[in-house]
């Protein structure tokens, strides 16, 4: 991509929330997701020539954010005391559980596929490419995640 600085800035600013949500789905930690987004911006800049088609910028940036988030997990980010002591909030009796609350309770691998599939609208094949697993694995994680969500949302 022959994107100049302004074009790069535009797509990064536009898709930062998507990058963040994808990163959060992988890390499960807001602080780590923020770190991942920051790192992803830098990495995207370095590799911007690999973006051939501007229309695929969202998928490209999301994939980089996912990779950075996974790297965050692998390097074993230090967790603050606050995060360590924070327990997932119990569902309130008189409140309908929102999807994002339910998704937050899923296992990390299922959380990622659900976020990329339902929120970001990527195909199972695209998700497979992002996560480095086979499309079959994505489908199987989706299926299991759906069952988990059904239990969480519908009891």
């Amino acid at each position: 991509m022959k994107a100049d600085s302004a074009e790069f800035e535009r797509i990064v600013t536009e898709y930062a929330p998507n990058m963040y949500r994808a990163a959060l789905s992988v890390t499960g930690s807001e602080a780590a997701a923020e770190d991942a987004v920051g790192e992803a911006v830098l990495r995207a800049w370095r590799k911007k020539s690999s973006l051939r088609d501007i229309s695929s910028a969202r998928a490209w940036l999301t994939k980089i954010a996912v990779n950075c988030a996974r790297a965050q997990l692998k390097r074993g980010r230090e967790i603050s005391l606050e995060e360590l002591s924070a327990e997932p909030a119990a569902p309130e009796q008189d409140r309908t559980l929102e999807l994002r609350d339910a998704v937050a309770r899923l296992a990390p691998d299922r959380r990622a596929v659900v976020t990329l599939y339902y929120y970001e609208g990527f195909s199972t094949r695209e998700i497979a490419g992002m996560l480095g697993v086979s499309p079959g694995t994505v489908k199987s994680r989706l299926w299991r995640a759906r069952e988990d969500l059904r239990t969480l949302l519908e009891g």
Binding site: V12, P17, Y20, V37, G38, E39, V41
Partner: peptide, 16 residues
């Protein structure tokens, strides 16, 4: 659902 993003995400992106 609204996309939830932390309030300082934009600042973080700006910084990057």
């Amino acid at each position: 659902e609204d996309i939830y993003t932390p309030t300082d995400l934009n600042a973080r992106v700006r910084e990057a």
